[in-house]
Design a protein around this nucleic acid. Structure first.
Length: 513
RNA sequence: GCGGGUAUAGCUCAAUGGUAGAGCGCUAGCCUUCCAAGCUAGCUAUGAGGGUUCGAUUCCCUCUACCCGCUCCA
């Protein structure tokens, strides 16, 4: 088991700056609400970014649902019953009283920290120089919370804070503020009493934006299984927005408060009910780990920039039997693209406990009811789109004899926002008309094509290179004579002559490769 | 959350206590027959708020956002 090694000297620290600039210039990603000064961690996808992300999601759906008999999809609501989050455990940490040590920066639950007598003098050691690890002995008095830091023993602590990992809102037309002001009218309450009144009033209508899409696959487990007559092993897949009030956000769109997930819950036999010849839960775990890793490399991410990192035992949740992260070597170091978790039967049992409804699968072969095990590949659509973008970003030096290099996004053609650009070599002799007709043919076939006649032909090629457009078709003098055009491939810059009549078919075939 | 840095045109950068420039880009036109050619004309900017000042993009304060490092990440 390898430990995460997040830190590494960045080989190209400036690549992100260039990519952010290109993203804005070419319309991949903009900062949200930019004219108002921006909003922390929020980004908007522009026209090309939207196409890219849609293509990423479409490829995922194709690989996970369309081409598989054993997986079906759902599209659940973002707001779910609050008890879903009690069952999943998200609401517990949400309301836990958290406290920070001001000396060693340890953070934890105040009700779990060592008790100490209020006002008592204590002695503790603090690391004063992180490089040498030099410590200094200090003294202090225990404060009102009557606890000390479990790490360094310091009584120098922050106030209690409750971290809102989930976005809370209220469902219903009555504003909780109305309820609160009514209940508080004419009352003089202590801080603790006041808090209770507020918490109760808010709780009555409180709902939360989902922090993950996974729970809807568990709550709908039997609905889906019965409606679609699914037999174990089978999976339920979903794509959609999730929301987390992250403590920190970083690295462009890599970690943000609003993000899109692509998750699949694969229900398989627990060991005691596994028939002969069927994959075991651990074999499915390996299968999905490898399948998900391969998905990224098949869509063009360089193999040496991808790895599967097994979680160390102390990183795992208590119920998990394993977790592999698919990681990408971002410009700032290795970071998570996707997590494949072996969740045992924890989630279904939790929901069974909290809802009081049976969530067992009836296995007609074994003639038994049981809770299936679950393997969960959970990917981030925004992270995937970002990784594809970073990996595709290439700066080529000027070829011998010239002085202009080129910037090219070597995206997999199926991920490219624009598939084909069609140019008239010059703006005369009917070439623009022919070119526009070709664009029309592509549009009719559902292939995103654009027309461009501005500037010299070389410049138009370079513009498309920056957008990641894999194919450029040019109408020239020969077109009028024999009905042929050139098709130029983005990465090799090689040109073939093809018939106009075959153009759509040729591109379709190349996209299918 | 802590520390450091940054904020000028669509992008990359310059300059200035007194009319804010360039390159690329973009728009229109001319020219142009295959890999960022040329000519002409045009468009576009000092993150937000406050203070000092006759006058602030420039000095000061606050806020916001972004970047780097630490911290955190159910």
């Amino acid at each position: 088991m390898s430990k995460p090694d997040k830190k590494k000297p960045s080989a190209e620290p400036e690549i992100m700056e260039k990519l952010v600039a290109l993203s804005k210039q070419r319309g991949f990603v903009f900062q949200s609400s930019e004219i108002y000064g921006g909003l922390k961690s929020c980004y908007d996808y522009g026209p090309l970014g939207t196409e890219l992300k849609r293509n990423v999601k479409a490829e995922w759906w194709r690989a996970m649902v369309t081409t598989r008999e054993d997986i079906v999809g759902i599209d659940a609501s973002i707001i779910m019953h609050p008890n879903v989050w009690r069952a999943s455990g998200h609401l517990a940490t949400f309301s836990d009283p958290m406290v920070d040590c001001k000396d060693c920066k340890e953070r934890g639950r105040s009700d779990k920290w060592p008790k100490a007598e209020k006002g008592a003098e204590v002695e503790y050691k603090v690391v004063v120089d992180h490089q040498s690890g030099k410590k200094e002995t200090r003294k202090g008095a225990v404060g009102d919370l009557a606890i000390v830091c479990p790490n360094c023993g310091s009584p120098n602590l922050s106030d209690i804070r409750r971290f809102n990992l989930m976005f809370r809102t209220s469902l219903g037309s009555i504003d909780p503020l109305e309820t609160i002001s009514r209940r508080l009218e004419g009352k003089a309450l202590s801080g603790e009493e006041l808090r209770k009144v507020l918490a109760d009033a808010i709780d009555e209508t409180a709902v939360y934006l989902r922090p993950e899409t996974a729970q809807a696959m568990f709550t709908n487990f039997l609905n889906v299984q019965q409606a679609m007559r699914m037999k174990i092993p089978f999976g339920i897949a979903q794509q959609g927005k999730s929301f987390r009030n992250e403590i920190t956000v970083e690295h462009f769109t890599f970690r943000s408060c609003e993000f899109e997930q692509m998750e699949m819950e694969f229900f398989c036999h627990p060991p005691e009910f596994k028939p002969e010849g069927e994959k075991s839960d651990m074999e499915w775990f390996e299968y999905w780990s490898n399948a998900r890793l391969a998905w990224y490399s098949n869509l063009g991410i360089r193999k040496e920039k991808l790895r599967l990192r097994p979680h160390a035992a102390d990183e795992l949740s208590h119920y998990a039997k394993g977790c592999n992260d698919v990681e990408y070597d971002y410009p700032w170091g290795w970071g998570e693209l996707e997590g494949i978790a072996h969740r045992s039967d924890y989630d279904l049992k939790q929901h069974e406990k909290h809802s009081g409804k049976k969530l067992t699968y009836f296995d007609p072969q074994a003639n038994k009811h049981y809770h299936p095990y679950v393997i969960e590949p959970a990917a981030g659509a925004d992270r995937a789109a970002l990784a594809f973008l970073i990996d595709a970003y290439t700066e080529e030096p000027p070829p011998p004899g010239t002085n202009e290099g080129r910037t090219v996004l070597k995206l997999h053609p199926r991920l490219s926002p624009i598939k084909v650009a069609v140019f008239p070599l010059v703006k005369k002799e009917g070439m623009p008309e022919s070119a526009r007709k070709i664009v029309g043919e592509f549009s009719k076939s559902g292939i995103k094509a654009v027309y461009d006649e501005k500037d010299a032909i070389g410049r138009r090629y370079r513009r498309q290179d920056e957008c990641g457009t894999p194919y450029c078709i040019t109408v020239d003098g020969q077109t009028a004579q024999d009905g042929s055009v050139t098709i130029r491939e983005r990465d090799s810059m090689k040109q073939d002559r093809i018939q106009v009549a075959d153009a759509v078919k040729v591109v379709q075939n190349r996209l299918a490769e």
